[in-house]
Nucleic acid binder design. Structure first.
Length: 580
DNA sequence: GCCGTTTTCGGCCCGACTGTTTTCAGTCG
């Protein structure tokens, strides 16, 4: 059994143990074991084969045995028994806000309820509220949770909530009693999708801000309202939290609620190892129960100060995912991340030649407005019939017209001629090599046959990567966030092939794709893998997507030199003619 | 179930809010 499936099973064991009422730390051990495997950069198979699982942090004797069994035999009796002992419907109950493992267990043990319909019935009939520890409000909350399950559980694209975030921030900052206001959480860390929004405000008059917040336009429901914290749900289903803290606690609250959870654990452990306790309120003496933070807390005015206090280089929010950022900061080995202002142009864009909405001329004007010095067009090839893909003849004409455009000196922006060439199901390219060779560059992408097996798909893409004419690989996994899973593909093998054949991989910056995923890049960057940030724009407005791509590049730890879009015109031309 | 410069037992990150309770457990982030 492969790593992905094993991770899934470990996570499920955690959930099942929770429903069985097991020790919370045991539950956490399975979850953290799964996370350790998820983050593993070295080859999983090799580690298991070499008997080195035990060396991984968070994986002890018990997990080693279970993982090895799953790896070698593909099954684990412990898991099968556990699964058989828990009613399958209970897993779904955990998706209801307010229901955790303990309460679900009570509902099942006392009432024998294990389906959503029966739970609904028990809420309306008064059976639930009669249970010890439950009441009328619990029943109402569960009922509304069941009814709104779809909207509540939904995550949201980072890009799609930027407007709402900016609007709320502006309102909070405009309040006369606001000293500082920031957005925190996964939004601030630039995750590709966000579950909810977190706002932190420094102010001495919390109650006024709470009133302002719960009355925001578009608020459908107020789910919590306390002295320092309120939660609301907007009509779109997204939840937002506001926390108001005194000015001296602002930095600590901002850091804490920016997370991630795993990053906070690392920071708190570091604090403990240095004799301190760190919370969202400040820095405390490890051994005292004082409610007052140590005096040093008041000298910390920024997150930089906070990291410095713990002898760490500053860690930007994008990198706070609980990987190795704390140890890198300790060694003063933080990357100098790419900025949006370093981008000088983008390559994978569409025009009216295939399925784009705007003409080449309009797209170039938009590139001028963005201050770029070049732009490349990669319209679809003929196999993408639904997208009006280009035949060999049309490609040749397009190359001509681009040459004329450049010669006419209409614009200071240089236009590169490219194509988004379909990778056919057998790995061949959709257009004649002699035609492809005349273009400045070729983006090879999969647009069909998504149901192939993992090995077929992997071989198919590698075959394309091995064609010397291919410059870069487009959206390597084909995922559409929140809509369509990636097709089955061994991304590690794709990365190896790209490096071996000097093929660039794109970050498709369309907010729905953000593909290749930021989690995969570190496996290749140190070995010379290059990235191209490509908005996959189908209109002038879409060019702005490049910002979402920069976010992902930053999460992947990329510096300017990893990204071809930071190079100037002549270096890019050289790259396309000479390779790298 | 994991872990160890407090080392083989006894902790495990920390605090707010809610709903249920008369002091706290469960949930959540």
């Amino acid at each position: 059994m492969g790593k992905g499936e094993i991770i899934k099973i470990l996570k499920e064991i955690g959930v099942l143990l929770e429903l069985k009422g097991e020790n919370a730390f045991k539950v956490r051990a399975y979850q953290s074991g799964a996370r350790t495997l998820e983050r593993l950069e070295d080859n999983f198979e090799q580690i298991v084969e070499a008997g080195r699982l035990k060396e991984l942090k968070g994986i002890g004797q018990a997990l080693v045995q279970k993982i090895e069994l799953l790896y070698r035999e593909g099954r684990l009796p412990f898991y099968e028994d556990l699964k058989a002992s828990v009613a399958p419907g209970l897993l779904e109950f955990l998706e209801i806000p307010g229901l955790g493992g303990k309460k679900v267990k009570v509902i099942y043990d006392q009432l024998g309820i294990d389906t959503m319909d029966a739970l609904k019935e028990a809420c309306t009939s008064g059976t639930i509220e009669a249970l010890e520890g439950f009441g009328k409000k619990s029943a109402e909350k569960i009922l509304s949770g069941i009814e709104n399950r779809k909207a509540y559980g939904k995550r949201h694209l980072w890009w799609s909530v930027t407007g709402l975030v900016e609007r709320i921030l502006a309102i909070l900052r405009a309040h006369p009693n606001t000293i500082r206001a920031e957005v925190a959480g996964s939004y601030r860390r630039c995750m590709e999708t966000v579950g909810d929004l977190d706002f932190i405000v420094a102010s001495e008059s919390a109650s006024e801000l709470m009133e302002l917040f719960v009355a925001l336009e578009g608020v459908k429901e107020v789910t919590a309202k306390g002295i320092t914290k309120s939660s609301v749900r907007f009509e779109s289903g997204i939840q937002a939290d506001l926390r108001v803290v005194p000015e001296e606690a602002f930095v600590f609250a901002l850091h804490h609620f920016t997370g991630s959870k795993d990053h906070n654990v690392l920071m708190r452990q570091r604090a403990l190892s240095m004799g301190y306790r760190l919370s969202e309120w400040g820095i405390f003496d490890k051994n005292s129960d004082d409610a007052e933070p140590l005096k040093v807390s008041s000298e910390i005015q920024s997150e930089c100060d906070l990291f410095k206090f713990f002898n760490l280089s500053p860690i930007v929010p994008e990198l706070r995912e609980g990987f190795d950022e704390v140890s890198r900061a300790e060694a003063s080995n933080m990357p100098s991340l790419v900025e949006a202002s370093s981008i000088k142009g983008v390559f994978h864009n569409h025009t009216t030649a295939s399925d784009g909405l705007d003409t080449l001329e309009d797209m170039v004007k938009a590139a001028e407005r963005l201050g770029w010095s070049y732009i490349g067009f990669a319209d679809h090839s003929k196999a993408s019939y639904q997208a009006n893909g280009l035949s060999e003849d049309r490609v040749l004409k397009l190359i001509d017209s681009i040459k004329q455009f450049n010669d006419s000196k209409q614009s200071k922006v240089k236009v590169f001629s490219g194509i988004e060439c379909d990778i056919l199901s057998d790995g061949r390219l959709d257009l004649e090599q002699s035609v492809l060779e005349q273009l400045d560059y070729v983006v090879a992408s999969v647009h069909s046959g998504f149901t192939q097996s993992e090995s077929e798909m992997t071989q198919r893409i590698i075959k394309a990567i091995e064609q010397p004419v291919v410059t870069m690989l487009g959206h390597p996994t084909g995922r559409l966030l929140l809509r369509r899973e990636a097709y089955a593909v061994d991304i590690d093998k794709i990365i190896d092939a790209a490096i071996a054949n000097k093929v660039i991989i794109e970050i498709n910056a369309n907010p729905q794709r953000l593909d290749m995923d930021w989690r995969h890049w570190r496996k290749g960057l140190d070995r010379g893998l290059l990235c191209s940030i490509n908005p996959d724009a189908h209109s002038t407005q879409h060019l702005d997507y490049f910002r979402a791509g920069v976010n992902i590049a930053r999460k992947a730890g990329m510096e300017d030199h990893h990204i071809i879009n930071t190079r100037n015109v002549s270096d890019v031309s050289l790259l396309f003619t000479e390779g790298y």
